[in-house]
Design a protein around this nucleic acid. Sequence first.
DNA 1: TAATTCCTGAGAGCACCGCTCTCTATTAGT
DNA 2: ACTAATAGAGAGCGGTGCTCTCAGGAATTA
Lengths: 267, 267
Amino acid sequence: MWNPGRAKSRALITKVDGALLMAQNQGMAQTPRERARLQTMDEILLIGRRHLVLHGAAGLSLRAVARDLGVVSSAVYRYVKSRDELLTLLLVDGYNALGDAVDLAVGRVPADDFPGQFRALGRAVREWALAEPARYGLLFGSPVPGYDAPAEQTTGPGTRVIARLVGILEGAYIVRHGAGAPAGGAADAGVVPAPGHILAADFRAIRAEWAITADDEALARGVLAWAAIFGAVSFEVFGQYGKATFRDPAALFEVQLDILAGTAGLS
Amino acid sequence: MWNPGRAKSRALITKVDGALLMAQNQGMAQTPRERARLQTMDEILLIGRRHLVLHGAAGLSLRAVARDLGVVSSAVYRYVKSRDELLTLLLVDGYNALGDAVDLAVGRVPADDFPGQFRALGRAVREWALAEPARYGLLFGSPVPGYDAPAEQTTGPGTRVIARLVGILEGAYIVRHGAGAPAGGAADAGVVPAPGHILAADFRAIRAEWAITADDEALARGVLAWAAIFGAVSFEVFGQYGKATFRDPAALFEVQLDILAGTAGLS
DNA sequence: TAATTCCTGAGAGCACCGCTCTCTATTAGT
DNA sequence: ACTAATAGAGAGCGGTGCTCTCAGGAATTA
């Protein structure tokens, strides 16, 4: 892919794509130098995103980004400390894009229709993943070796989907059980056996952290539904089903959502 | 990681690890040259596997393998066409290792205890994945960009686990419904709505290909259970749950297996 | 046994990668 | 107008995948 006759133009950014990032970073632009700096940062992120889509996470190269930017490779190190830092920026960017898609889709459903919200969340995740397989792979695929995402920047955006799911499932739980809640440990004898000490404590901690009332079984089923949604999406995006097994994967996913809605206690 | 003072020894292979591969390749060793060639191939695979474990799929380097082999980098190209081909070999190797682990675990359970076999399969997958996260990532993580596995070498070993799962679920289905089977299309009106034309045809094709009798809903639930098992394992192995959320992930997985056994129609 | 073919490994080389360093020109702020 | 900060250029180091040519030795054939 060596292209010596490459144009040195900087005007590779599509206006529509750029708009989102520009807006978030250039809200307070003091000095003209700072403005230029932020703009370059956004350009780097934009180019990086495009490279991610085209060549995947492992193929992300700062030198190639520099070429697209119309600049020598060492110059980008003025803006980004390392390749891994750019990866982190793109990771956060991806989490937020997915979170936005999910929020938008769930927000369209009436606030009291929790099964509908659950399905909307699932569909949004699947559709975003299919539209952006490389970014999805960066977020939920095998971690890039030698790189672990800095939690302080990542956990926030990275928990937006599960936060939304928790809200939906808790809402449905309250509808089923009333707002009063069992208050105590709530170790029901349902299909799920009473979990051992540590797991019960973990569930208690989760209840406290998220300020929810759902009992252990509801929590376990919620965690399973969460993992199952992403498992199904990953299987489809990563091609684990095989090429021609399911010719209408969307229909399969709808059926899977139906089953999962049942296991998660949504109608 | 530049190590100029590296010993040029070839004796890096542990006997116990090597034994398996040796056996399968050197069954028919004709000329001494062929014997030497196969042995070198096995060594390369062994070293590649070790590098995979240590540095991950993206960090797999033919030059590093050559160094460990005590040979100049161009020499390994006599045995392996490209880095991607080595990756394919390791992929097949990994699928077989996982398949062996699953077969062993399921084989320990009585032949008529389908719920037990289901749980054993799930546990085997999880334990293998935790023991070999890099290999698991190669198999079920984001696909290496620019590389797609050649189906003719991959599909065979790659379908061992799902084949085993299909056997278990079909066995349980027969126990529930009798061996006679509904024969026809079997579009039950269960929790799952009757799937559309294409999905129903896909299910029919699956029934024919695997020579099974399970109806559409059972198949859908089986596919979901499959995806959910790997979703849960991937979440744990890839660290999606967060660092300290679940301090006893094994217990969580047991609960998830319980729920999944229910959704898949096992007891 | 002698001649010939074949195979293996060595070495050089190309284009790429991440990253560091120094140097220069431009720009901003006093 | 002068000084200080900053951005970019360029060279360089060690690494990567992969290709090519060449020499030595082993196996096969005459």
